[in-house]
Design a protein around this nucleic acid. Structure first.
Lengths: 229, 229
DNA sequence: ACTTTATTGCGTGAAAACAACACAAAATAT
DNA sequence: ATATTTTGTGTTGTTTTCACGCAATAAAGT
């Protein structure tokens, strides 16, 4: 077996967060070193020899941003020989989501001076091929939210229905009929309606709170049903 | 930058073929060397330093099996530290399809003595974690065929409608109502009906020949429609 | 306090998609 | 010629989706 191969393996983490005020945002870091020093980039780094890819993602995220991920899946592997100007680096990109509550917690973190959330419609110039990587990640988020209940991973544990609606309209970039949307979601029976009401912030009638019921969802999947918006 | 990392990068190619007689099959090779010498495995090999991942896949496939792929996409990257007993190998797995005409051409190939097609329901024992890899690939094929027109990549350029129907019943493992299926497909207007008829092999009325119209399909996609069985 | 404004919650009818179903036509096999 | 195999097509009842309007609840404005 040849051992002449000279490719470094890294992981990247494209992490999305959401809030009603800031919309759908992605976590970026400002690069401290060359190449692309000072530019914004997707967080990530090299994989250690004995470490799984997922462990590497979580470690790097913690080191660079202090953020703890709520949902993680593999996105795509970028392996073009010239992605990095110095040497060949293969990046296994992961796709992560954080709950609304976690979102914005950056300020509290110590290492996070150079990390920031950016609305996905107002992205800065990015290092390497990260523009392309991010485009693919956003595509995945947009399409996946239609047939997998990952939207709930972006909201708080308890949320008013309007938050869910707002998330979908924002992400899919089209208006949604609240009544039909409610019907569709509620007859899947994957949401529990809580007795409490949201405490109103701002004008308008306060909404009931809901909660995603994961075990109910898993049941449905076992029966071959599937969520689809 | 540390260069102490010691991970080898390989590609694997899970290639599917189809024929009415043999059903949906996958291309495997018999390993010539340790570890797992003599066992069946997914074709693949190490990526060369200046070579793209896709190029590596095509090269290895040609070397090991003589098969030329018709459709190729990335499947998943397997990076667990202990996948290979000798040293850490990260495998970027690709998912490929060959046309029915190409299928079975193995015998003609010179290097292909140790390559064979296996019906996906009659798989042999596999080397490494290839059983898991294959399971994921089959899942992908099954689910993707429902919402992307990749089924046509498995058939000949011109095919009778019954072939399409047979492919779907086989792959989805459930009966399909011919009339409803025809209605659904034909009102998408992605098939051109050819004036010729299939020359009959065996009893029964010969069917008309059809052909997938890719540009028509792309139009539909642009308009936001989507294929779904 | 009462009026205005913002937001939530619910129901109905029309249109489209889906599922179930049977028989005639064209070819080969005997 | 007659039987057998396989293709091709149309109708109807049911279910799902889509479009749409109005009353209820609370905060904000006066």
């Amino acid at each position: 077996m040849k051992t002449t191969q000279n490719i470094q393996v890294a992981v990247d983490a494209i992490v999305f967060g959401y809030s009603k005020e800031n919309g759908v945002s992605v976590l970026l870091i400002k690069r401290k070193y060359e190449p692309f020093q000072g530019q914004w980039a997707i967080p990530g780094g090299f994989v250690k020899d004995e470490e799984s890819l997922e462990a590497a993602v979580e470690r790097e995220l913690k080191e660079e941003t202090g953020v703890k991920i709520n949902y993680l899946e593999q996105l795509y592997t970028f392996g073009e020989p010239d992605r990095d100007p110095r040497k060949r680096i293969l990046a296994v990109a992961y796709f992560g989501l954080v709950k609304s509550a976690q979102f914005e917690k950056l300020k509290a973190s110590t290492d996070a001076e150079e990390a920031e959330w950016f609305n996905i419609k107002k992205l800065p110039k990015l290092a390497f091929d990260h523009k392309k990587v991010l485009r693919i990640a956003i595509e995945r988020l947009r399409s996946k939210i239609k047939y997998q209940p990952i939207g709930f991973e972006l909201l708080d544990k308890k949320f008013p229905f309007s938050d869910l609606e707002h998330l979908y309209t924002t992400l899919l970039d089209r208006p949604i009929d609240r009544r039909n949307f409610k019907k569709k979601i509620s007859h899947l029976k994957i949401l529990d309606e809580l007795p409490e009401k949201a405490k109103s912030k701002g004008a308008g009638r306060p909404g009931n709170l809901f909660q995603f019921n994961k075990s109910r969802y898993n049941e449905l999947v076992r029966k071959g049903l599937h969520f689809e918006l």
